[in-house]
Design a protein around this nucleic acid. Structure first.
Length: 288
DNA sequence: GATATTTGACCTAC
DNA sequence: GTAGGTCAAATATC
């Protein structure tokens, strides 16, 4: 029977989907969750919360000076222009967003998720470029070096060789369409319950320190450039690898509109620091 | 309850 | 004075 082959294909498709889908449960810290958050105002000086007697919050409600403020343009070590700002192999936590003067899109600020535990100073900003090409491009600026050593630490932002995911058109016609159809804008739901998910969760991929859980509502494009195709640039150069890879639109958003603002969380597929294992190797292995 | 994100306010360099 | 960077309460979700 061909069922085995079909099953294999299906499993492969599933795995691919998982690997290149955002917020896969295989991402570390147990979540990669997508949430929509509200916001509230904080106390404005002493009026709201401090009925005059509490000492004002050192930062928010008073005069306190919390110190570690950096210089304006931090020593930006490297930056690149990409349509897939999330593929850097690290795990980032967003801590701010700011509308930048003269820019159409807000800039998002991220720091390494290990910054709290290990004091990793690595930060990055992601800003969508004004020239709205297709796909949209983002300027990602990295500041500081990773000093975190969790699990399989990587010396520098590393992206696994996952280019092979760009499947030939003939192969994508069915599976990709399927994916497009059922891929919601954001979810970890479908991914969570497949056998392959379990396989991944049990594999070294799960809980890897550097699987990136940043998420992007930016383009709806998921593509995985190979490591070798990315040039980390000093401030003099910009690496633009966005054109090197065909778009693998595996989870097209329901509405491009929601991508426009880049205000939502940024999501990215799983990155796995697997000592020489490419995802294709993993796929191959999994399929056997 | 834990954790990540949102977002306005705050702080500081320019 | 302004713009950019950061903080942290509020909040959503698991």
């Amino acid at each position: 029977m061909t069922t085995l082959g079909l099953q294999g294909d299906e499993l492969l498709a599933q795995l691919r989907e998982l690997l290149y889908l955002p917020s896969s449960p295989a991402t570390s810290s147990g979540d990669g969750r997508w949430r929509r958050r509200g916001s509230k105002k904080r106390c404005r000086n002493d009026n709201e919360n401090n009925n005059g007697d509490e000492e004002p919050h050192p930062r928010r409600c008073g005069s306190g000076k919390t110190s570690n403020r950096k210089t304006k343009q931090q020593k930006s070590s490297k930056y690149l222009v990409t349509s897939v700002p999330d593929f850097d192999g690290y795990q980032w936590r967003k801590y701010g967003q700011k509308q930048i003067e003269g820019a159409m899109y807000a800039r998002s600020y991220y720091r390494c998720t290990r910054s709290a535990e290990q004091g990793c100073p690595a930060k990055r900003t992601v800003q969508r470029n004004d020239d709205d090409g297709n796909p949209a491009k983002y300027t990602v600026v990295y500041m500081g070096e990773h000093t975190c050593t969790a699990n399989d630490s990587l010396e520098a932002p590393v992206i696994l060789e996952t280019t092979a995911v760009v499947v030939p058109a003939s192969a994508t016609s069915s599976s990709a369409n399927k994916q497009q159809q059922r891929r919601p804008q954001h979810d970890d739901d479908t991914a969570a319950s497949t056998p392959l998910t379990a396989a991944i969760n049990n594999s070294s991929m799960a809980g890897s320190c550097c699987s990136s859980t940043t998420t992007t509502a930016a383009t709806g494009i998921i593509e995985s450039p190979a490591t070798s195709d990315i040039t980390w640039s000093s401030s003099d150069h910009v690496a633009d690898y966005s054109g090197l890879f065909p778009v693998y639109d595996s989870w097209a958003p329901a509405s491009l509109q929601e991508m426009e603002d880049f205000t939502g969380p940024i999501r990215s597929p799983v990155h796995v620091p697997t000592d020489g294992w490419t995802i294709d190797q993993f796929l191959l292995h999994a399929a056997i």
